[in-house]
Simulated assay, not measured.
Amino acid sequence: MWPLLAILLIAAAIAAFELPSLWRNELKKDAAFFAFLLLFGTGLSMAQAMQADIPNPLDWIAYVYKPLSDWIYGSMK
């Protein structure tokens, strides 16, 4: 419970510090992208704090390129 609250408070502090300057400088797209990344990172941090099983993106890349790698190594024999 406490780690989740700490993560939310830190994310709120980051948003309160960064977002007003982005809105004032007419950087609406940047502010929206920043908010998306902050929410995504906050969600992942909260999931990790709750010890959820988060898949590793490198496993997906290895799964996609494994057949190509096997074919290349097989053709070199």
Rank of each mutant, 00 (worst) to 15 (best):
A47V: 01
D70M: 10
R24L: 10
N56Y: 15
P20Y: 04
N25S: 11
M1P: 01
L38E: 09
L22R: 05
A12E: 14
D30E: 15
M1E: 04
L9C: 04
G43T: 12
T42F: 11
A47S: 05
M46T: 03
L39N: 09
L19M: 15
I54P: 00
W23R: 11
F33M: 10
Y73C: 15
A62Y: 06
A6L: 09
A16I: 02
L9Y: 01
R24F: 08
G41T: 01
V64D: 04
W23C: 07
L4S: 09
I72R: 06
S21C: 07
G43W: 10
A16K: 05
L8C: 10
I54W: 01
A6Q: 07
L37F: 09
D70L: 12
F36Q: 13
S21M: 08
A15F: 12
V64F: 07
D59A: 07
A12V: 13
G43N: 08
P67I: 02
Y65P: 00
L4V: 06
I14R: 00
G43M: 12
L68A: 14
G41K: 01
S45L: 14
N25R: 11
A62L: 05
F34E: 04
L58C: 03
Y65I: 05
A13P: 01
S45G: 15
L38A: 11
Y73N: 15
A35V: 00
L39P: 05
R24I: 06
K66T: 04
A32P: 02
P3G: 00
I54Y: 01
I7H: 04
W23S: 07
E18W: 07
E18I: 11
N56R: 14
W23Y: 13
A13Q: 05
L5E: 12
G41V: 02
K77Q: 04
I61W: 07
L8Q: 12
L8D: 11
E26N: 14
G43V: 13
A49D: 09
N25Q: 11
I10D: 08
A6I: 09
M76T: 07
P55W: 03
S69T: 05
L22M: 13
Q51N: 15
A12L: 15
L9Q: 03
W23V: 12
V64R: 06
F17A: 05
S69K: 07
A11S: 10
A13V: 05
W60Y: 14
S45T: 12
A32I: 06
A13C: 04
A62Q: 04
L27G: 09
L4A: 10
A11F: 00
V64H: 02
E18N: 09
L38Q: 09
M76K: 09
L8I: 11
G74I: 10
I10V: 15
M46S: 06
K28T: 13
W71S: 12
L9D: 02
D70Y: 10
K66Y: 07
K66V: 03
M50I: 06
L22S: 02
L9N: 03
L22T: 02
L8A: 14
F40Q: 08
P3W: 00
F40L: 14
D59R: 07
A62D: 08
S75K: 02
I14K: 00
M46G: 05
L22K: 04
I7Y: 03
K66C: 00
